[in-house]
Amino acid sequence: MPATDLLLVSGISKHFGGLSALTDVSFSIGRGEIYALIGPNGAGKTTLFNVITGIYSPDSGSFCLNGQNMAGRKASAMAKAGIARTFQNIRLFSNMTALENVMVGRHSRTRAGVFGAIFRNASSIREEQQIAARARDLLSYVGISRHEHMLARNLSYGDQRRLEIARALATDPMLLALDEPAAGMNHSDTDSLRILLERIRMDGVTILLIEHDVKLVMGICDRLCVLNFGHKIAEGTPEEVRSNPAVIEAYLGNS
């Protein structure tokens, strides 16, 4: 397999009862790419996303991260293997502070157990300091360090979105999967999100993006895949997709 592919999705299908949400979907994401998944409502984007992040397991097909087959693993195993995600309807730990939220993201990269917690031996103290330091860095990376002690539920909407990204980055992902990160954002928020995503990519993290904001998608992604009724109908660069008649009919035509 080509060493440049980070994620290789092949022939994924998923049914719910008699309804087939995904039919034989395949695509691949190269290292360092920003890759988008678009399609009208009900096209199967979120289902695909949930398969890749371990919430659903696919009925058939497989997908490999870095050459390792991941299909059907638990969500926590996905995070450990290097796929981190955000949620469409923000799911922060609302009664924890911003800092604590990001610290939770370090869970799978740290080890201290009950013994370390109770006895606070040198290595667990060091680890705890590293967790906090890394979390603070990430808060400032996404630009909300001034709110580190605020409860997540009291942050503004845009800051909650940023916090979710910081929390996901705390798992040291190879692939950052963002479920409609611009949903509900105003114009200037979207602009700064675009800058943030560019920066994350520059720092070596590959990004998978589901997005409704076509302008943002076309402006930022390297390649994209268009789904309709659970089938892949097009794939390519924004220019290629934009001129694809099937896409115009299915998606751009009615938006």
């Binding site: 992040t53 371990g54 919430i55 638990k74 969500a75 926590s76 996905m78 995070a79 450990k80 981190a84 995600r85 949620f87 799911r91 922060l92 730990f93 609302s94 009664n95 924890m96 604590e100 610290m103 939770v104 993201g105 370090r106 869970h107 799978s108 990269r109 740290t110 201290a112 157990g113 009950v114 370390g116 917690a117 109770i118 606070r120 667990s124 680890e127 705890e128 967790i131 929390r167 996901a168 705390a170 798992t171």
Partner: peptide, 26 residues
């Protein structure tokens, strides 16, 4: 000690949102 540790944070994370906690690698 447990409350203010990696384990304690994981417990609270599960209380707050189990699906998100699992997605964060817990």
């Amino acid at each position: 000690r447990l409350q203010n540790s990696r384990i304690g944070r994981a417990w609270v994370a599960i209380r707050e949102d189990e699906i998100a906690a699992e997605a964060m690698g817990i």
